[in-house]
Design a protein around this nucleic acid. Structure first.
Length: 730
DNA sequence: ACACTGTGAGTTTTT
DNA sequence: CTCACAGTGT
């Protein structure tokens, strides 16, 4: 195609028109380019109407990116292409076909937290033994049943304690229906039900979407597979792109069989392999190929690049996790000194718990960084509080939202009142909110408290339509005196929480401004946030080192990548590692990690690691063994670093070989002063920081390892932990 | 109804 | 170690 610069294989894929095709796209092989160019090609050269094309992705970020690129290629013609995530596609169908679903079009989406609350209720109602059937366990098993097979009941029947699970499952589904809510699994399953129960509806969409494309096909679960199968079976124009070697969500129901058996599922399917990589050096690709070749269950392929050679992979054997973090920081500082931007670096790890020490160490070194993942914005308590109110306005049948809202801020309404309302509600077959409105029969004290709440809600309801969503939410916060509640709640978190609320308001405002007129802003907003994640907000080139789990890193690339915790038990994780199938998934995760790196890769393991307050001595990861020695340059914590970690005085003769970064040998004066005998700083003293250059000491606070010094670099003023920062006296 | 305290579990989380 | 949650005590 004239507007894409494509290699031979990419070109074949882009020019494919009819019939099923699997594109096995290795990491960094230009799969997004292939997807977007094919869409453009279909429209421009084959006169396929844009509204006849459906492209499905897993993340909003991927959908946005693809849409952007298709727009760049096609301009306005791109607008009618349906390009969205599986879940938003299904929600659109379900709302549009509400007449056939029996659910109405104002259902809400329940996330994990809401699900757990539902299971809480069920445990109470069925009087289950919480130690045996925790809400977590129930939620996990039942979600798994819904994900893994299309017949959850049948799946659960094979389980131990199947009667309990079946009972819970049925009650759970009944509750969601009552609350007019769908969980993430249901969004897909209900769409499949809709299509199966209404062949004429299915036929309509089959005829509309004659060309279907799926991104990250290796991550599809059985429901997604079934959905795609149904939609594509009439015309068989199914174009899927994926990499079985990057299938890392098996534990969430993704079924690698879908990609491995694509040719069986769709007769006459062709396969095109994209093996030329445009991201990484030869060294990095050789390492990745070598590791992944240890997996049996895969489609054979090998990435290659025209860019021969490259910096050797650094394996570093740290003394402990602190030394690991120090190593990472020093390498980054050295890179920055050589002119790199902080956002060229990423630190990847297997578990979120590992991020903490790296984070604090980066902060101590004064390196700008950003942690992705971990606690999510919309899961924060204060955010969920406000959302509970908004949800209640949108859908008064949402009992989960009601329970949260009614006693936040505290209104003296506790378990006793909730139980009373629950009996009224189940007796009359109404929602808890409706029960609260009809609670005259309850004791006067209770009734008046409930009345006060429903009055506030009804008052606000009247204003809901007069005000925009942003103004309404501000009014809501005022009416319930939320600020006062935050101030009164203990702890020093008031300011952070208030900031979060401000951020929420900001997001509402921004969302509202982007809406076309006459849209139901509240419904649209609630739907939007339930389908959006933090990683969507990852901006590249934000001037910070990125910290994230290996899972979160999929799809991203960085000049230099550090993988921390390359140890047996951590990576591969001991919770996975035993079964061959799970070990293969860990290995794919390692492959994903390695292939994030463009130029430089550091693999780090620690001899000793503080784990759950105990010392662990993990052998280094088997994945390190799977990389040929000649691709690596190994170094380890010298006795100097060990001494530093032990806070002892180092012996002189070995110190100059500690931590040579980017080929440079860092000498004693560059080592952080935590290792050297403590340095005495004075105000107005001239000092030199490894990354920021020369400056003047402004202030010294505290002593010893807690000492903080403030330095004026002329263009900026920064604070450092004196014992960690790479500062020397000039 | 709420605060406090003890217990126990601690992998990953696109939607 | 450190956080979340459930159960107890006021």
């Amino acid at each position: 195609m004239e507007f894409c610069n494509l290699n031979v294989e990419q070109k074949k894929a882009v020019e494919h028109v009819n019939g099923p095709l699997l594109v096995l796209a290795g990491a960094g092989s230009g799969k997004t380019r292939v997807l977007t160019c094919r869409i453009a090609n279909l429209i421009k050269h084959h006169k396929i109407p844009p509204w006849g094309i459906l492209a499905l992705t897993f993340t909003n970020k991927a959908a946005r990116e693809m849409l952007q690129r298709v727009e760049n290629l096609l301009g306005e013609d791109a607008a009618p292409v349906w390009l969205s995530t599986f879940h938003s596609f299904c929600i659109r169908i379900l709302r549009f076909e509400a007449a056939h679903t029996g659910m109405g079009n104002n259902f809400v989406v329940y996330d994990d937290n809401d699900q757990l609350s539902v299971y809480d209720e069920i445990i109470k109602q069925l009087e289950l033994d919480k130690n045996m059937f925790s809400k977590r366990l129930l939620c996990e098993r039942i979600s798994q049943a819904k994900n893994y097979s299309l017949n959850a009941e049948e799946f659960l029947r094979d389980e131990a304690f199947s009667e309990v699970y079946l009972k819970v499952y049925k009650l759970y589904q009944k509750r969601l229906k009552q609350y007019n809510a769908l969980d993430f699994d249901d969004i897909l399953l209900k769409t499949i039900d809709l299509f199966k129960a209404n062949p004429e509806v299915l036929a309509h969409y089959q005829n509309r979407f004659k060309f279907i494309m799926v991104d990250e096909y290796q991550d599809t679960n059985m429901a997604q597979y079934e959905l795609v199968y149904l939609l594509a079976k009439e015309h068989q124009n199914l174009f899927v792109v994926g990499d079985d070697d990057q299938s890392i969500y098996g534990w969430r129901g993704a079924n690698i069989r879908n990609i491995l058996e694509f040719e069986k599922d769709f007769a006459g399917a062709k396969i095109i392999r994209l093996e030329q990589n445009y991201r990484s050096t030869d060294v990095i690709l050789d390492a990745a190929n070598s590791v992944i070749s240890n997996n049996i269950n895969r489609k054979k392929k090998a990435l290659w690049t025209e860019e021969k050679g490259g910096i050797l992979i650094r394996t570093y054997c740290a003394y402990n996790e602190k030394d690991e973090a120090d190593y990472i920081c020093k390498q980054i500082l050295e890179g920055i000194r050589q002119g790199q931007k902080a956002d060229a670096f990423a630190v990847l790890y297997r578990t979120n718990a590992q991020s903490r020490i790296i984070e604090t160490t980066l902060a101590a070194y004064g390196i700008a960084h950003q942690v992705y993942g971990g606690q999510r914005f919309y899961e924060r308590a204060e955010i969920r509080d406000v959302l509970a109110y908004l949800r209640l306005f949108y859908n008064p049948a949402d009992d989960i939202a009601f329970v949260r809202a009614i006693n936040t801020p505290r209104r003296g309404i506790g378990n006793a009142a909730i139980s009373a309302l629950t009996s009224i509600a189940s007796e009359k077959g109404i929602s808890l909110y409706a029960a609260a409105q009809n609670s005259q029969s309850l004791p006067t004290a209770m009734y008046s408290k409930l009345k006060r709440f429903t009055d506030v809600i009804e008052d606000l309801s009247l204003q809901k339509n007069k005000l925009g969503l942003f103004e309404f939410t501000k009014k809501l916060l005022l009416c319930i005196e939320y600020d006062k509640y935050l101030k009164e709640s203990k702890g020093d978190t008031y300011e952070t929480r208030l900031e979060n609320i401000d951020e929420l308001l900001g997001s509402i405002k921004e969302f509202e401004e982007g809406l076309v007129e006459n849209t139901d802003a509240l419904g649209a907003y609630l739907e939007n946030i339930s389908l959006v994640s933090d990683i969507d907000a990852l901006q590249e080139q934000n001037g910070r080192v990125a910290l994230m789990t290996l899972h979160s890193a999929k799809g991203l690339e960085f000049h230099t990548v550090f993988i921390a915790g390359m140890e047996e038990g951590i990576f591969p994780n001991r919770k996975s590692g035993i079964e061959p199938k799970e070990l293969e998934e860990e290995r794919r995760l390692c492959y994903v990690g390695i292939t994030r790196a463009m130029k430089a890769l550091h693999l780090i393991h620690a001899q000793q690691r503080n784990l759950y307050g105990d010392f662990a001595f993990n052998p280094h990861s088997r994945f390190l063994e799977e990389i040929p020695d000649e691709l690596c340059e190994s170094c380890s914590a010298s006795s100097y670093a060990i001494a530093a970690a032990l806070k002892q005085k180092p012996s002189k003769q070995v110190q100059k070989f500690a931590h040579g970064g980017f080929g440079a040998i860092i000498r004693e004066k560059d080592m952080p002063s935590s290792a050297a005998p403590s340095v005495q700083y004075k105000e107005y003293q001239r000092v030199k920081h490894a990354a920021f250059g020369s400056g003047t000491v402004l202030k010294i606070e505290g002593t010893g390892s807690a000492q903080i010094i403030t330095i004026d670099f002329g263009t900026m003023i920064k604070k450092f932990a004196a014992s960690y920062a790479p500062i020397e006296i000039e």
